[in-house]
């Protein structure tokens, strides 16, 4: 394996993004190191989801720099970006209704060696195994989320971009997803997480970035969390 431990796995600098005419990101600077779980916090509309989508190259237009393992991706199409070893689990989950669960699970192609096997995925999400032949959108919200995460684990991508994986789910399921993310970290995945649910994020993340108006306005490590609590409440308005 190539030694890239020197620099960060993912490095954004001055990232700007547009949807049509509207300018959403105004220069985002952040990085994610190999093996970390980094959480992006911020109020609704701060640009968190857009940041993830810009990293994947699925916004209208983007500018600045997004480096993955030192490779500049800013002018790449999203399929080439994915093939570098990034995988994206969108907020809306994007389960395909014309595919059954198995087809959904097997859809994303392998981009790198070293992904999880189907059995390993079923170990994380036993529910999926029982529902393989159901239509994708017949699953419950929680199962859909498991499927959306599960299907990107096979591909060999090292960096997982998870957009609000707990949104709208029951506490039991949120807990299960938390356990899963911890296991994934243990297995060596690097994770960039967008979360509204701060309580949930606090149990997982190594570092935090806080966004407002399309920019990073603060960042701190998990160890500094207590000291930053008050500021954070301010930022998030909780």
């Amino acid at each position: 394996m190539r030694d890239v431990a020197q620099g960060p796995l993912l490095d954004l600098s001055g990232l700007e993004a547009w949807y049509g005419e509207s300018h959403i990101l105004h220069g985002v600077d952040m990085n994610v190191r190999r093996g970390e779980v980094v959480c992006l916090l911020g109020r609704n509309g701060a640009g968190k989801s857009t940041t993830l989508r810009s990293i994947m190259g699925i916004v209208g237009k983007r500018k600045g720099s997004v480096k993955f393992e030192g490779v500049e991706t800013i002018s790449m199409a999203s399929d080439r970006i994915a093939r570098l070893g990034l995988a994206f689990c969108p907020e809306e989950r994007a389960i395909f209704s014309s595919l059954d669960v198995k087809e959904n699970l097997l859809l994303p192609p392998q981009v790198k060696p070293g992904g999880l096997s189907l059995d390993q995925i079923f170990e994380l999400f036993p529910n999926l195994k029982e529902r393989l032949s159901s239509q994708g959108t017949k699953l419950s919200g929680g199962e859909q989320q498991m499927l959306a995460i599960g299907r990107i684990l096979r591909t060999g991508a090292q960096l997982l971009l998870l957009d609000e994986p707990t949104e709208g789910l029951a506490p039991v399921i949120i807990q299960q997803i938390g356990v899963t993310i911890r296991k994934l970290k243990e297995q060596g995945f690097t994770i960039l997480l967008v979360e509204q649910n701060f309580r949930f994020a606090a149990t997982l993340a190594d570092r935090y970035y806080v966004m407002e108006h399309g920019k990073i306005i603060d960042s701190f490590a998990n160890s500094e969390l207590e000291a930053n609590m008050e500021k954070l409440h301010d930022y998030l308005g909780v």
Binding site: M56, G57, I58, A77, S78, D79, I81, A82, R83, A87, F88, P90, A94, L107, P108, P109, V111, I152, T155
Partner: peptide, 8 residues
């Protein structure tokens, strides 16, 4: 869009 973001 999503299929493409899977690398297809």
């Amino acid at each position: 869009t999503i299929v493409r973001a899977f690398g297809v």
